[in-house]
């Protein structure tokens, strides 16, 4: 019994300590981010590995998610004779929820885990320590550009996901199932609002990009510098990112769409 309380107490204090470290890390990263501005090359390198390399998985997934939405939506809506509203259904689900959320989950799996592993290995091979001894702040040189890149790439990737998804829904709905082309687009435009839907969707993806970049970089930076430690940190990045994305999504949705 005492063991149990000991264990509970230990894990409580250690998780609070970790939370504290992560906030400390975040504030340092944010201040360090300023120093990236005069050196765009660092940012471009990272946009490449975070953004360009995630491009394919995001667009292909977006296309298939859109196609599935088109197919499923069509069967359900046709029961009510409301196939014409397929466009709204596909676009609203993508822009409000699936675009930001699924893109962020894929981003965490593709780019986030890679970031954690990269930073963790840099720590394990003393590269971070070596930079500190060369009087180069690894937060400025290594962490901040990656953080900014994630923060910038995420909304773009989510927008790509949603857009490609809407086209995928069009391909299936209009191209294969015979929904009227004009109705698909006009119902969509009438049903979705720029402010309420598009902007809120973009805000979501910005928040998710911030969260995933933060989690994955911190897990790498805080990893135990052994191969086992790095692999655990990578797993934690994916798991914690997924929880955080879904939790934040609920909170944001409640704030944005549910007049709270």
């Amino acid at each position: 019994m005492i063991r149990f309380f000991q264990h509970l107490g230990h894990s409580t204090t250690s998780s609070f300590a970790k939370l504290g470290r992560s906030f400390f890390f975040l504030t340092h990263t944010l201040t360090a981010s300023v120093s990236v501005i005069p050196r765009p090359r660092l940012l471009i390198n990272q946009l490449y590995s975070v953004g360009v390399l995630s491009f394919l998985i995001i667009t292909i997934s977006g296309l298939f998610v859109g196609m599935v939405l088109g197919l499923q939506g069509f069967y359900i809506l046709s029961d009510f004779g409301a196939e014409e509203t397929l466009g709204v259904m596909v676009a609203a689900s993508l822009v409000r929820e699936l675009g930001p959320v699924v893109a962020a989950l894929l981003f965490a799996g593709r780019a986030g885990s890679a970031l954690t592993a990269e930073i963790g290995l840099m720590k394990a091979t003393e590269q971070l320590s070596g930079m500190e001894m060369m009087a180069i702040d690894p937060l400025k040189r290594i962490i901040a550009p990656r953080f900014l890149a994630g923060f910038i790439a995420m909304p773009l990737l989510a927008a790509l996901f949603s857009s490609v998804g809407v086209l995928g829904g069009h391909m299936v709905g209009v191209g294969m199932l015979g929904v009227d082309d004009g109705a698909y687009w006009s119902q969509m435009q009438a049903g979705l609002d720029f402010q309420d839907d598009i902007i809120n969707g973009i805000i979501k993806s910005i928040v998710f990009g911030f969260a995933v970049s933060w989690i994955s970089l911190f897990e790498g930076y805080d990893a135990i510098p052994t191969s086992e430690g790095v692999s655990r940190a990578t797993t934690r990045t994916v798991v914690n990112s997924a929880f955080t994305i879904l939790g934040l999504d609920f909170i944001l949705t409640a704030l944005m769409f549910g007049d709270i």
């Binding site: 390198n45 946009l47 490449y48 676009a91 857009s163 490609v164 973009i202």
Partner: peptide, 29 residues
């Protein structure tokens, strides 16, 4: 090559944002 790809990526992303604003929502309507 890297610069070009990053440029293309950012351009695609911005195009997607425009597409969402103009074609998906009623901003132009």
């Amino acid at each position: 090559t890297q610069d070009t790809l990053v440029g293309l990526f950012v351009a695609c992303g911005i195009a997607a944002l425009f597409f969402m604003a103009m074609q998906i929502s009623n901003l132009n309507g």
